[in-house]
Design a protein around this nucleic acid. Sequence first.
RNA 1: GGGGGUGUAGCUCAGUUGGUUAGAGCGCUGGCCUGUCACGCCAGAGGCCGCGGGUUCGAGUCCCGUCACUCCCGCCA
Length: 591
Amino acid sequence: MHAYRSHTCVELSEANVGEEVRLSGWINRKRDHGQLVFVDLRDHYGLTQCVIDSSDACFEMVESARLESVVTVTGEVLKRSDETINTSLPTGHIEVRIEKFSVQSAADTLPLQVNSDENSGEETRLRYRFLDLRRTRPHDNIMLRAQIIQSIRGRMVALGFTEFQTPILTASSPEGARDFLVPARLHPGKFYALPQAPQQFKQLIMVSGFDRYFQIAPCFRDEDSRADRSPGEFYQLDLEMSFVEQQDVFDAVEPVIRGVFEEFSDKSIDSEFVHIPYAESMLKYGNDKPDLRVPFEITDVTEIFRDSGFSIFAKNVEKGAVVRAVPGPKCGSRAIADRMNSWAQSEGAPGMGYIIYGDGEARGPVAKAVGAEKAEEIRVAAGVGDGDAVFFACAPANEAASLAGRARVKIGEDQGLIDQDSFKFAWVVDFPMFELDEVTGKIDFSHNPFSMPQGGMEALENMDPLEIKAWQYDLVCNGIELSSGAIRNHLPEVMYKAFEIAGYENSVVDEKFPAMINAFRFGAPPHGGIAPGIDRIVMLIANEPNIREVILFPMNGKAEDLMMAAPSAVDDVALADLYIRRVPVIKSKSD
RNA sequence: GGGGGUGUAGCUCAGUUGGUUAGAGCGCUGGCCUGUCACGCCAGAGGCCGCGGGUUCGAGUCCCGUCACUCCCGCCA
């Protein structure tokens, strides 16, 4: 017989009754009846109940073995009597009589409870991740992730995409997020950077003539974490296609995403992903990642408040502010309105005006100030009725949109109006090519500098830069940005011109993007692509509120790996090899 | 960098208006229990109430500071 096991802990059934078997695994739980002990033995595959009574030689060993110790059990498979069958276990019709018992590895008192569905504190979970991962839900999440990635690979290959690996040590790029830098031993004073995404490589793969590329690609960005953003590193389904327009990319990606979501989740999915222009999304949803599960939209009511009796808004509108109205279904009470107002203050806004509609009339300070006629206009514009409320965000357009957007989601959540059993996908399209930097007042790329402007060279030469749209798109699901992509700019002259508008001379392009600009001089196919975030896809399908739940060994919010104790100090000898010297950290008061 | 939340036994948590000896479940140690499957019963050990200062006759509880974890804003082409 094998030294450790003849079967796994899920395999045995009535068919094996009478066989001598050997199982190895962890002690999940024990039930000690004094003269009779039950041991639930757990491995990756399942649970098998093992049993021993005091007449047996190894009884005391079994009785004293601690939970989570790794043990090997040898014995006969017994059929359970009808009254003792456990129908909630696949192996519940049998049990194994412990005839030989050995402890392969004893466990200390546990820092977290493995056989519990309750999460321990985050720090404990991360420090003892190998214990946390034994628990059912984390274990299942990681298996789900592996299966999703496997399914994605299969789907991509079936569509004629080929998986390539791209470099991990590459050049720092001036745009975008903060880079992780790696000192170059052979080049004192110089650094590699970890790729924020294989962006330039995948475009160069197209220029190299490979037509359809994909990769489950690690991406590295030194930016702060969020619940849906792991610090440091994450994975994208990176893909790129030659000779395509925007709709071709959608047609390729949509079935893959829908297929994966349908394969691994029971939630409903619309048959077609809606297309929402960026400007419309900002207006109706207050952001570029709309949660379409919230069953109401924001309306612009600026003109109703212009010259109205509500002087605070009227004055702000005169100065260029806008007013956005957020419907509040069943929010027609003073208590809810007050709660929204203090919520808005906690979000950094001065507050949130409101009108309450009830018994055929409009109530509240705003309603009084603007009069019944305008209050009715607002009610119709917002599409609400008796018992509802309307909340107002009055500020410069970006700020008002943002506050209204957050209020919309909050109302949806608070009022229980979000369908928890659906995935609502949307393509957000027509992103602006450029935007105004609010601090410097300069024009800059609003998204990806490698995107093709809609209208090409002609648009760059003749239009107001802020009016130019790009062939740039996001895929959004339930208010989470799943992916971002674009039709790329493959024309050197158009690229120079675009960078020129953003304030960069040709020489900057030549210096910072030598590969791209060189490549585009030797016959570059028109191409485009997208890069859905793997971690976020798994997080949505697993129905987890935090991205750490779908990552094997995640870092904490401060980008530390508590289990491995990374980052860590290194000695001066290692630094000297790299021509690096430590300097004291100087903390100024302004820090 | 800024704001919010949390921090009490190995783990998950309770702890009233500031008032005697800080509790429960799980786990751990010991005892009882031969059909449990979150087994049951009895007993015990285990506490710098995150840390430091302050107010007070008296602080787990109030105040200030600080640290840790977390969520959000900034940031994330």
